[in-house]
Design a protein around this nucleic acid. Structure first.
Lengths: 137, 137
DNA sequence: GATGGTCTACGACAAGTGTCGTTGACATAT
DNA sequence: ATATGTCAACGACACTTGTCGTAGACCATC
């Protein structure tokens, strides 16, 4: 019989891995791109080969993290989700896994980690005001 | 020769994995604990076996994420770092990998993700004031 | 139409992770 | 003192991830 299958095989969107996230960031910045374009976009940072980038993108297409347009010889990839959606998902995950769901702790950690600019601080203040206004209803 | 070693083998603290973080959270809540205690603390949530928990803790001891007291027959484990330190490290990592270093974006995502309580919002406001005061120096 | 470049696809591989079974040491109760 | 239970250690295993090499399709240009 077949218990020890343990992992229920998560079908939908199982959180992008490290390398996948790196490629997603490039797609979010550049918009739809070919493998070569992405490869060159990161070849400064990493010493990794062309086929590596290709393979990861193929995996991502299977998983549904990116969408592939095969109409041209050089396939064009685009991110399946907007940056904000994926970021939300990642924050949600970290919140659960490391902060027991306390978003305030996470915010404090983030602000302590890297000092935000004055405009950014103002933006956050704005958001706080808005939230308090809403909660008063 | 030895390039293609790629990963520079991070010796100190290579970011706790999923299962490791789960155990760390238990240690942070309960304080120093035995394997059995931790196993029972999560056996509600997961269907995972005792030896699994043991093995992961042994790996964590090797990596230095936990410190093991072997003076009793049932070894007692305690977290090597405070929750805040590890959380900071994780936030730093996510910041780089998914938010291009913009802590403001992360804060916005966190607050949108899960509405914080009024007291928590006040706490954040406090922190903002403090940061602005400092930056005026 | 042969040559060289560019692309996708496929397979291999090492390392890491999570999972468990088994074993041998030790303790406890009968 | 024998049987029962608990514990740490070790090895095995499947699966994922990141990495690459090679092969086969396609397209130039000579």
């Amino acid at each position: 019989m077949f218990w020890h299958m343990s992992k229920p095989r998560r079908s939908s969107s199982p959180k992008p891995t490290e390398a996948e996230l790196e490629l997603l960031q490039i797609l979010w910045e550049r918009g739809p791109s070919t493998v070569r374009e992405m490869y060159e976009a990161l070849s400064g940072d990493k010493g990794t080969g062309y086929t590596t980038t290709l393979k990861i993108l193929q995996k991502m297409a299977e998983k549904g993290h990116v969408i592939r347009d095969e109409s041209e010889r050089s396939h064009v990839y685009r991110a399946a989700m907007k940056a904000e959606q994926t970021q939300r998902q990642l924050v949600q995950d970290l919140l659960q896994r490391a902060f027991r769901g306390s978003s305030a702790s996470l915010v404090v950690a983030a602000l302590n980690e890297k000092r935000a600019s004055a405009t950014e601080l103002a933006e956050i203040r704005e958001l706080l005001d808005e939230m308090e206004r809403e909660s008063k209803t």
